[in-house]
């Protein structure tokens, strides 16, 4: 694998994470428990889609085959997606959606902080831009996790159930492979394992305040970031997201 090929894969991972989560979160539009939360979810989704445009456009530029963010988003099938399994999981209830958001926001905020020092200036400038938005996201999602976790008996039970369900998908964020090794060697991105300590400190503090317990055991699901084995859910999501381009190839306005 050349450095350019590894960079392309890395950028797909960044862009597919925000794309898939952005699409998932946007499914809440018009369905959230209260209007303010509906607006907040839609705005979060909008930020994520905006970040997707930056990452995937750069991915297309690095690949050099004339693909832009739209082509990468709408003209690839499941096996070409490089997102973490965590972000493709169905929304579940509002509590699970916010728990997933928090677990992702916390990771993204740590990662983007490191990427602002990337040896690749185009990566650093996107990280700088996205990092400001993500700082705001993590503030909101951690506040909601604390509010619901340390809330009523019902909300607490739901947040603990959400954490139990989602925690086995967190480990994939910190697993390294050949792409990560190449990015670390080039000084473009940090070794994922090196983010764990900062992540655990942040997540541990918030979950502690939320009176929630992190499940024991080190098992984690993987297969999203390298595309080897996505969950069954991603394909269903893509049929909806990509419907227009599948039904009317090349449609534009």
């Amino acid at each position: 694998m050349t450095r350019e090929e590894a960079l392309f894969q890395f950028l797909l991972r960044m862009g597919d994470n925000t794309l898939v989560l952005g699409q998932r979160v946007s499914e809440w539009c018009g369905h959230a428990p209260v209007l303010e939360e509906d607006i907040a979810l839609a705005n979060t989704a909008l930020d994520l889609i905006g970040q997707t445009q930056m990452w995937l456009n750069l991915a297309g530029e690095v690949e050099g085959k004339g693909r832009d963010a739209d082509k990468l988003a709408f003209l690839r099938d499941v096996w070409d997606f490089r997102n973490l399994l965590l972000v493709e999981l169905p929304n579940g209830d509002f509590g699970r959606t916010m728990m997933r958001q928090f677990l992702f926001d916390a990771w993204q905020s740590v990662l983007l902080g490191r990427l602002t020092n990337s040896a690749e200036p185009r990566v650093a400038e996107i990280a700088e831009k996205a990092g400001k938005e993500v700082a705001y996201h993590v503030e909101r999602s951690s506040g909601t996790v604390v509010g619901l976790g340390d809330g009523t008996e019902e909300s607490h039970a739901r947040m603990q159930a959400a954490l139990d369900y989602l925690w086995p998908y967190v480990g994939e964020m910190f697993a390294s492979d050949a792409v990560d090794e190449e990015m670390a060697r080039a000084g473009i991105a940090p070794d994922p394992a090196g983010l764990r300590e900062e992540y655990d400190a942040l997540v541990g503090r918030v979950l502690g305040e939320a009176t929630l317990s992190i499940p024991e055991g080190g098992f984690f699901h993987k297969g999203g970031k390298d595309g080897a084995r996505h969950t069954e859910h991603l394909g269903h999501m893509l049929t909806e997201m990509q419907w227009l381009q599948r039904a009317y190839p090349g449609a534009s306005w």
Partner: peptide, 13 residues
């Protein structure tokens, strides 16, 4: 504070 987001990405309620 009512919500950290508002009618546009740049505003809170």
């Amino acid at each position: 504070k009512i919500s950290q987001f508002g009618s546009t990405p740049c505003k809170a309620q």
